[in-house]
Every structure is written in C-alpha cells, then in structure tokens.
C-alpha cells in the first residue's frame, strides 16, 4: 500500500487513492480530500460522512446509497446533490473508507 502526503501528513491509500487506515482520518483531512474532487464540505456533507464513518465502525463495510437513505435517513436525491454523479464512491473517498462492495 502506498503512503502519500495529504494535508501535510503521511496517509495510507490504495492504488486508486482511497484511504486504507480508518484511524488516520479526521474531518480536516476530509476537507482536503473533498477539495481534490471539487467539493467544498458543508454541514450537510459532514452529516453524510459522519453516518458513513459510524456505520462502517459498527459493521466493517462501507454502507451503500440505499443504506444511507434507509438507515441514515438521508434521501438519495440529497446524496446525488451533495456528491454529484457517483455519490457512493465519492462519499466513501471523502470519508476515508473503501468503495462500497454491495450492489444495492
């Protein structure tokens, strides 16, 4: 796994650039990650990211879009507005988690 520098600190990432170490992430880092894909984090973004992080911590897998809407109570349309085009992967990237593995 490559180690790269994000926000002046060493961070473990996979070949695509997704973070691999849960503990290395914090919200400052999230702002930098979001910035690299043209997203400026707002409270609405952070609410989504915090749900992803806590759900991952409990279940060990990145939640799918449907799970974010049904369990996290954040409407799917909102997710597409906040993280345009590929919300599932963009959310995971900013949250420092692996890409979601589930199909739906």
């Amino acid at each position: 796994m490559p180690v790269t520098t994000i926000a002046d600190r060493p961070v473990h990432v996979d070949d695509e650039g997704f973070m691999t170490e849960y503990q290395e992430w914090d919200e400052d880092l999230a702002r930098t990650l979001a910035g690299t894909i043209g997203i400026e984090l707002t409270d609405a973004h952070l609410e989504v990211i915090r749900f992803l992080r806590s759900d991952f911590e409990q279940n060990g897998v990145t939640p799918t879009l449907r799970r974010v809407s049904t369990v996290g109570n954040i409407p799917t349309k909102t997710l597409f507005d906040l993280f345009p085009k590929k919300p599932a992967r963009k959310m995971a990237y900013v949250a420092g988690l692996p890409k979601p593995a589930g199909c739906i």
Binding site: V3, E16, G17, K86, Y93
Partner: peptide
C-alpha cells in the same frame, strides 16, 4: 525522512 508517493486522486469520471 520518509519519502511518500505522489497523491493519487481516484478518477470519478467527471
């Protein structure tokens, strides 16, 4: 000094 790899940003196909 640890040299780190250059930053890789995933291609989201935007």
């Amino acid at each position: 000094l640890t040299e780190t790899a250059p930053l890789v940003v995933p291609d989201f196909g935007d």
